[in-house]
Computed example of a mutant assay.
Amino acid sequence: MTTTPHNQQLTLALSKGRIFEETLPLLEAAGIRVTEDPETSRKLILATNDPAVRVIIVRASDVPTYVQYGAADFGVAGKDVLQEHGGDGLYQPIDLNIAHCRMSVAVSEGFDYATAVRHGARLRVATKYTEIAREHFASKGVHVDLIKLYGSMELAPLVGLSDAIVDLVSTGNTLRANHLVEVEHIMEISSRLVVNQAALKLKRERLQPILEAFERASQGK
């Protein structure tokens, strides 16, 4: 069995769940098939049918860091994650047109958000996306105190922790189930391919065909 020298092996960073599932068809378009399911395997490094390509499973928010520092040659991350990370040291060649959702401001039913903003009230806003929220409210001249949370964002207004939340919304079902309503749309979110800049130079011959296959497949979505 032939082995690929480590310095020529490509490492792709993915997070479990929707991004992983929606990246699989793009990989298959490049002739690459992951041989294990991360939902059933405890392994964090997954082989593929191509010995020169492996997949590492990391937290979604960590994908840009693994790619930036060269622990992964390329990865897939949502625009939300990239906005929070800042994108330093990353080449972002392709919007993959997958994992669509939106970033929104939401409040409890009955909270008069428009009037609060109009009267210059200082709002408490719970979010995992502090940079996006800070930039959004600053651009509107709204004064906010940001409360960093890592999950169960919808709970914050219900128990009086915050007046509003900034979070990802897909169907809106979770908001409705918790008697919250969207009051402002911040941005559309999709997932992007990110590439380590050094890898793009040193491993271009191996990377380029995969990037091109990803681009063709994403344009056809």
Rank of each mutant, 00 (worst) to 15 (best):
E215L: 06
G172T: 03
T130C: 02
A47H: 12
A156I: 05
G151T: 09
I19S: 12
R206M: 07
T35I: 12
G75R: 05
G86N: 01
R176P: 02
V159H: 04
E22R: 13
D112P: 11
I32F: 02
R59K: 13
V53C: 03
E188K: 09
I57A: 10
V166R: 02
S191P: 05
V55M: 03
V169M: 08
V58T: 09
K128C: 01
L193H: 11
K148M: 10
A217K: 14
Y69Q: 06
T48D: 06
F214A: 10
T127M: 03
L44Q: 14
A156E: 10
L175A: 08
A217D: 10
E182L: 02
L180I: 00
A72M: 04
M103G: 04
G78P: 09
L180Q: 07
T171N: 01
D145K: 13
R176G: 02
R204I: 02
Y91C: 03
N173W: 00
V169Q: 07
R102L: 03
G141V: 12
V53H: 05
P51S: 13
E84N: 06
D163I: 07
V125E: 09
E182D: 10
S152V: 11
T2D: 14
P25N: 11
I56Q: 07
E28G: 01
Q219L: 15
A106M: 07
D88L: 07
E212G: 04
D62R: 07
Y91R: 10
A72Q: 04
T171S: 09
F111E: 11
R216A: 14
Y91P: 05
T35R: 06
G87K: 04
F20E: 12
D145M: 02
M187G: 06
Y113W: 15
V159R: 09
L123A: 09
E215D: 15
T11E: 03
G31Y: 04
R206A: 15
I210K: 02
S170C: 07
V117R: 11
